[in-house]
Amino acid sequence: MTNYGLVIDQERCIGCQSCSLTCKQENNVPMGQFWNRVLTQGGDHVDTPSGDYPEGGDGGTLEMTYQPTACQHCENAPCVKVCPVNATYTRDDGIVEIDYDKCMGCRYCMAACPYNARVFNWDEPEHRPEDGTGDVAERPQGVVEKCTFCSHRVEDGLDPACVVNCPADARIFGDLDDDDSTVSKYIAEYDTHQLLDEKGTDPSTYYINGEMSPGRPWKSKKLESELDDDEAAKAARRRSGSVENGYDVTPHVPAETAGGDD
């Protein structure tokens, strides 16, 4: 079985918000709403830290981390359980999705979701431009909406928009049930955690902290499973460290012998 999941390397995330904005565009998310938010863990405002500014260069305790947060696509999703009309459901591939025709706007799911991942169309959705953007139909007033892992793209063999357009390669999407997939390997090799794991929701979104990963190693728009042999080989080499960024760079040259484009 395929079970899609997302790994976000917070050591790589630079808080640029490309994922939030490209998500809005791809999914025709109404003005005023976000499916995908990059939260600042630190001060009260975006891009501000908490703690003390160092005095005379010493004693500083400033800290800031970016926390990209969208629907976690939980294996044990509370939103699915509470939906009285089965509008929210888990697909065979692990993606949690909403049937907007069934949704009656009761918002039980919003109360149940511990990640604040869902938004509700209180008003008639507003778009700029008016005709909307991206590749997903508009959701009407009165329904709840949220991240779909760009299921429309995934079905077409493409990575989610937030993954393809991350300038830091901090987001990696793939099949958690495939031990050879990059997401599975990173979860095994790096220090990862799920958000609020004490709640037993078992999210399919994992966050790397500590040692930095090579990030998404392939330079393509495709899902890892759709890569051709050449692309896959390059990605694997980058992951293993023998090639950085798919470039065959000259290995480190000792200072004594360095010089020239050798």
Binding site: Q17, S18, A161
Partner: peptide, 25 residues
């Protein structure tokens, strides 16, 4: 309808930022 990072001829330089993704507006 949307803007995405392109995979250029020198593929490793597939790039783009938050601003580039919002050209539509």
């Amino acid at each position: 309808k949307k803007v995405e990072q392109q995979v250029p001829a020198a593929k490793t330089f597939k790039r783009g930022c938050t601003l580039g993704m919002t050209h539509l507006q």
